[in-house]
Amino acid sequence: MTVFKHILIPTDGSALSERAVDEAVHLAAEMQARATVLTVTEPFHISGSWPEVSVDEHADWAQQRGQERVASGAGLARTLGVPCEPLIVEHEEPYAAIIDAARSLGCDLIAMASHGRRGLSAVVLGSETQKVLTHSRIPVLVLR
């Protein structure tokens, strides 16, 4: 039986993603593995002729939103005695940030929700999970 030692657990803050985080942290506890709970925030973009918020305001908002997304998983990990680091990354392509983080942190498993989008947006934009599955050389556990 393969035992994983470091699990990357991406979250987008959706209800489906939060359930997957819960399951993945419990899996890490059972395997006595470390965990990293990751969220990816969007970089600052200027829209129209003048930005609605400043770069600093966006950075503060993104950091706060990221902390909210990783807080429950990191808290559960603490409760279960799982060594866990929260990680907030800014990137245009969430799937690429997930794969890059897994590779750079030496993770041997990515455990994530089946998808974050539904309906037409999932068809047009594609599932980040599908992109991770397509491009990752690290095993991916998809949770529903």
Score class of each variant (00 low, 15 high):
residue 37 V to S: 09
residue 65 R to H: 10
residue 77 A to C: 12
residue 42 E to R: 07
residue 40 V to L: 11
residue 43 P to L: 10
residue 68 E to C: 00
residue 65 R to A: 10
residue 70 V to M: 03
residue 35 A to I: 05
residue 62 A to C: 12
residue 46 I to N: 10
residue 78 R to G: 08
residue 103 R to E: 15
residue 86 P to Q: 08
residue 89 V to C: 06
residue 54 S to M: 14
residue 92 E to A: 15
residue 48 G to N: 11
residue 72 S to Q: 01
residue 94 P to I: 00
residue 102 A to S: 10
residue 102 A to W: 01
residue 57 E to M: 12
residue 79 T to Y: 03
residue 106 G to Q: 05
residue 95 Y to D: 07
residue 54 S to P: 07
residue 82 V to M: 02
residue 83 P to L: 00
residue 71 A to S: 12
residue 32 Q to I: 00
residue 101 A to H: 07
residue 80 L to Y: 04
residue 53 V to N: 13
residue 82 V to Y: 05
residue 50 W to V: 14
residue 77 A to T: 09
residue 54 S to C: 15
residue 91 H to C: 12
residue 36 T to S: 12
residue 109 L to C: 06
residue 92 E to W: 07
residue 77 A to L: 03
residue 80 L to S: 04
residue 71 A to C: 05
residue 97 A to F: 06
residue 53 V to M: 14
residue 99 I to N: 05
residue 111 A to S: 09
residue 83 P to M: 01
residue 67 Q to P: 04
residue 84 C to Q: 06
residue 47 S to F: 14
residue 92 E to P: 07
residue 61 W to H: 12
residue 70 V to F: 01
residue 63 Q to T: 15
residue 106 G to D: 06
residue 52 E to T: 15
residue 66 G to R: 06
residue 59 A to P: 10
residue 103 R to W: 09
residue 56 D to P: 11
residue 81 G to Y: 01
residue 93 E to C: 01
residue 62 A to P: 09
residue 31 M to L: 09
residue 52 E to N: 13
residue 76 L to R: 11
residue 68 E to Q: 08
residue 43 P to E: 14
residue 50 W to D: 14
residue 106 G to E: 03
residue 66 G to W: 09
residue 96 A to Y: 00
residue 86 P to S: 13
residue 54 S to L: 15
residue 107 C to K: 00
residue 94 P to E: 04
residue 107 C to E: 01
residue 66 G to V: 09
residue 77 A to V: 01
residue 37 V to Y: 10
residue 79 T to L: 10
residue 51 P to I: 13
residue 88 I to F: 03
residue 31 M to V: 00
residue 39 T to E: 02
residue 65 R to I: 03
residue 69 R to S: 10
residue 58 H to T: 07
residue 80 L to C: 05
residue 38 L to K: 08
residue 69 R to L: 12
residue 49 S to M: 15
residue 52 E to P: 13
residue 53 V to P: 11
residue 60 D to P: 02
residue 105 L to S: 05
residue 103 R to Q: 15
residue 34 R to M: 04
residue 66 G to S: 06
residue 99 I to Y: 01
residue 103 R to Y: 10
residue 103 R to L: 14
residue 100 D to P: 02
residue 111 A to H: 03
residue 55 V to W: 15
residue 90 E to A: 13
residue 93 E to F: 06
residue 57 E to F: 10
residue 88 I to M: 08
residue 110 I to R: 02
residue 56 D to A: 15
residue 50 W to P: 06
residue 104 S to F: 13
residue 92 E to R: 11
residue 64 Q to W: 02
residue 58 H to P: 12
residue 93 E to L: 05
residue 45 H to S: 14
residue 58 H to E: 13
residue 39 T to D: 05
residue 49 S to W: 15
residue 83 P to K: 00
residue 82 V to A: 04
residue 72 S to I: 05
residue 75 G to I: 00
residue 36 T to H: 02
residue 38 L to E: 04
residue 43 P to G: 08
residue 106 G to Y: 04
residue 78 R to W: 04
residue 108 D to A: 02
residue 81 G to E: 03
residue 46 I to S: 14
residue 49 S to Q: 15
residue 41 T to F: 01
residue 35 A to L: 07
residue 77 A to H: 05
residue 87 L to Q: 08
residue 99 I to F: 06
residue 102 A to I: 11
residue 74 A to I: 06
residue 40 V to T: 02
residue 78 R to H: 11
residue 73 G to N: 08
